[in-house]
Amino acid sequence: MGNWERLVWNQRGVLLQGLMVTVEVCLIAFVLAVLGGLALCLVRMYMRPLKPLAVLLTEFFRATPIFVQLMWVTYVWPEIFGWPNSFFTAGWVALGLQSSGYLAETFRAGIEAVPRGHREAGYSVGMSPVLVFGRIVLPQSLLTVAPSIVNQFTVIVKSSTLVSVITVQDLMFQALKLVNVWYEPIEILTATAGIYIGFIFLVSTAGKMLADMLRQRYGLAAA
């Protein structure tokens, strides 16, 4: 037990600091992923001329390994676009872009899951296509996919451990640093895994509760 106290409990400040960075990077990436995914999905479904571009981007984000994407955004983008100018930014951009590809497909599934009759009911009371989309299709599909969106956050958290490679000082980075100082990986890495499990468990439990609530209140099954 001595090792646990010395290596983990006494280092909790460092680990906690790392966890905060992890949370921060994941939250920003999540916002980017939701907005980017929604944008990709809407362009793909409703802006015919730009559809090939949206499909290309979606597939590109989905098909590239997150590690490759991280390296690409960190080392190639600054050469081409002169941005991002920090490893932290590069980290959330890469994480966010990859998830935006997945979420674009999730949103599309949600929109396609809205029964045609619900739109027809809107048209038959005189609503315009824009009103029908904004008031009926979009809110209903957002509710339907909300649990899936929450689950995508857990994917971001898991992928986020890779940003330690580009020296973003997240939980994984701090854990590896401690390992390198003490050469005692067992307790430190086990504790780190435990923290990730706990965090992801909290998020996915929230997702499940949300799905239950949506089913009971609105009768919506998760897409």
Binding site: P115, G117, H118, E120, A121, G122, Y123, S124, V125, G126, M127, S128, I136, P139, Q140, L143, Y218, G219, L220
Partner: peptide, 19 residues
């Protein structure tokens, strides 16, 4: 759309908006 307002439609599947 404007003229459709004058015709109330009731569907077999109800089609209420669940949200």
């Amino acid at each position: 759309n404007r003229m459709r307002r004058d015709l109330g439609m009731v569907f077999q599947q109800f089609n209420l908006w669940p949200h």
